[in-house]
Amino acid sequence: MKGKQFILLILGVLFLSSSAIFVKLAAAPPEVTAFYRMLFSTAMLLPFALGDHRIREEISSFNRKKLGLIFVGGILLAVHYILWFQSLDYTSVASSTVIVTLQPLFAVIGGYYLYQERLNNKALIGILIAIMGCFIIGYRDMQLSTTALIGDILALIAAAVITVYFFIGQSTRKHSGLIAYSVLSYGSSAIFLLIYCLITRSNLTHYSAETWLYLLALALFATIMGQTIFNFLIRWLSTTVISMAILGEVIGTCLLGYIFLNEGISINQFIGITIILIGQAVFIWFSGDK
């Protein structure tokens, strides 16, 4: 992995970590928050796409197969948000977040069958160490009940869905520009989420100025400066590497919660953060993506 790519990974994780903070601060239902996150993100990138004739020509040159894959990716991103947010109605935030971090396991399996990617045993141990750190952070809040089990299953499916989203990106981004890919992906995600909000009759308009500000910040920081960085890097890095980096979101969320929400960092969180960092270091060192 090159130095610039490593720095971008860290920045992407940091900005993506702000997602939980702004979602918590915004007084809007999860599906509405997700919709405006994608809508505002699309609106922020659209002027760059419309204002550059090369990007317009690139989009118009996409064949049906590529457009279809990108649109499917956008829909999967929306489904990920719906499932993950819905899981929070059944289980704890910690439990849901920890289960979503099982994403690297799906990435390893998918990478093996789709791209014949093979990791050595030491890199796999790094993945398991990092995931163990995530579980240490959230184990105290995990629940053992039928209701919680439903939430955990939804979170697990959400982890699988977002992994497929990155695999689609790994395939289509190799021959697509960042802006063109992101605008189409975020735009299709916003359309799907709008349909979902209309079906569920969610309130789309009556919110405070503060909530609108948080929704804009969510789009700017978590998506444009977070998710889009991963869309950029997926052209050169594998889904497994991206997934391992995103485990750092658990760390970033804890740190940002401490800074902006005055949420203390417990001993188990500190230990979990340390173990995640060790696992990520082991993975990066032995994965061959150095």
Rank of each mutant, 00 (worst) to 15 (best):
M1G: 12
G3C: 04
L8H: 04
L8E: 05
L9Q: 09
L14T: 14
I21K: 10
A26P: 03
E31H: 09
A34Y: 01
A34M: 04
F35A: 10
F35S: 05
Y36L: 04
R37Y: 06
R37G: 02
M38Q: 02
L39A: 08
L39S: 01
S41P: 02
T42V: 03
A43G: 00
I55A: 09
E57N: 14
S60F: 14
F62T: 08
L67T: 10
L67D: 11
L69G: 10
I70Y: 12
F71V: 15
I75Q: 14
A78G: 11
A78F: 00
A78N: 01
A78Q: 00
V79Q: 06
H80F: 04
Y81F: 15
Y81T: 05
Y81L: 13
Y81Q: 11
L83R: 04
F85E: 01
D89M: 11
T101W: 11
T101P: 02
P104T: 01
A107I: 06
A107M: 02
Y112T: 06
E117K: 04
L119N: 12
L119E: 07
N121Q: 07
K122M: 07
A123C: 01
L124M: 12
I125L: 14
G126N: 04
I127L: 08
A130F: 12
A130R: 06
M132N: 08
C134H: 00
F135M: 10
Y139C: 05
R140D: 10
D141P: 05
M142S: 09
D152L: 03
A155I: 13
A155H: 10
I157C: 09
I162P: 11
F166M: 07
I168D: 01
G169Y: 00
L178R: 11
Y181I: 05
S182N: 14
Y186I: 02
G187A: 12
G187P: 00
L194Y: 06
T200N: 14
T200W: 03
S202E: 09
S202Y: 10
T205Y: 15
T205H: 14
H206V: 06
A209M: 14
T211F: 09
L213N: 14
Y214C: 12
Y214S: 06
L215C: 00
A222T: 03
T223I: 03
T228C: 09
R235V: 08
T239I: 12
V241S: 15
I242W: 09
I246R: 13
I246T: 15
L247P: 12
T253V: 13
C254H: 14
L255D: 00
I259F: 06
F260S: 13
F260D: 11
F260R: 09
L261P: 04
I267T: 13
F270A: 14
I273E: 05
I273N: 04
F286P: 02
D289G: 15
K290Q: 13
K290L: 13
